[in-house]
Design a protein around this nucleic acid. Structure first.
Ligand code: MN
Ligand code: MN
Ligand code: ZN
Ligand code: ZN
Lengths: 148, 148
DNA sequence: CATGCTAAAGATAATTATTATCATATCAAG
DNA sequence: CTTGATATGATAATAATTATCTTTAGCATG
């Protein structure tokens, strides 16, 4: 788990920049740093955590900017919010289809892929409900570290 | 969707009462009302929403009691918290295995069952991560009502 | 490469969601 | 009915997120 090293960062940054241009979003220093930090994070950080990490390099950034920027990115489909059981929102820049395991003890979130599931058709009753845009699996359990 | 009328309420209340006794939880008026309200709700209400509904019948109840009681119930496995993308926690008393569809427009949460999925084995990599206790699917999309 | 328009950032404060503290009330055992 | 432990309600605190408003800085244009 979590050993799939993220696609090359420089490539992601280039794509990010052009996506901003396309979406009429200004490519600011803050946005670049927030995106970069999230893109290289493997732990699905919350806004507060991202803020702490970015502050080291960019001490003038405000927490509010992090929140607003994440919301903007999400709206434009540049990042996504991870479904969780806690009250704090968690984010990721990895947009490739994958799923999550959450440790109910330490709150860590890890990725896993399951193409077999991705290819399966949803049960018929779901079609009546409306139009599904994302299929996420959220496993909950106790990670190896927490199980000691 | 959502047409599976909840198992008979009286039965749920009886089971709830004996579960409380077994767990050394006092069977208070408030706990009964909170559980009853949640058991008959089909919409996975947040604490605030439950509070509003219960207040009509029990005007002296406090929001804090609702929060504490839900936390207690959850700890004892009497109810569960629904994974969501929003910052407000949502709950349900239905403990039978099932999954959720979330409307990203109106925030409504509906149930669906998928025994085919429930019986499938998880991919091998997950076993290395730790011990999984719950497998939830969270579909995100636009419900028929919101799609107009 | 200066100028000006406009979106974005930062400071500040306000909301919203949830949790803690503590005095009083209530459950349930004897 | 008395008693002792627990739960509740009042109050206040904390955590998470969002709004307002002034200043700053992308970036298009000449
Ligand atoms: Mn992920
Ligand atoms: Mn449900
Ligand atoms: Zn853990
Ligand atoms: Zn809807």
């Amino acid at each position: 788990m979590n050993n799939c090293s993220q696609h090359n960062l420089t490539g992601m940054m280039t794509k990010f920049t052009s996506a901003c241009r396309k979406a009429d979003l200004k490519v600011t220093h803050q946005r670049l740093e927030i995106y970069r930090e999230l893109a290289q994070a493997e732990d699905h950080p919350a806004a507060e955590m991202l803020y702490k990490r970015i502050s080291k390099r960019l001490p003038t950034i405000s927490l509010d900017t992090v929140y607003r920027t994440l919301a903007t990115f999400e709206k434009h489909g540049l990042i996504s919010r991870v479904p969780t059981l806690e009250s704090q929102a968690r984010f990721e820049a990895k947009m490739a289809r994958h799923h999550h395991v959450v440790c109910s003890k330490c709150g860590s979130i890890s990725d896993f892929i399951w193409s077999g599931f991705d290819e399966t058709h949803l049960p018929a009753q779901v079609a009546d409900w409306g139009k599904v845009t994302r299929k996420n699996i959220v496993l909950v359990g106790i990670c190896a570290a927490c199980a000691r």
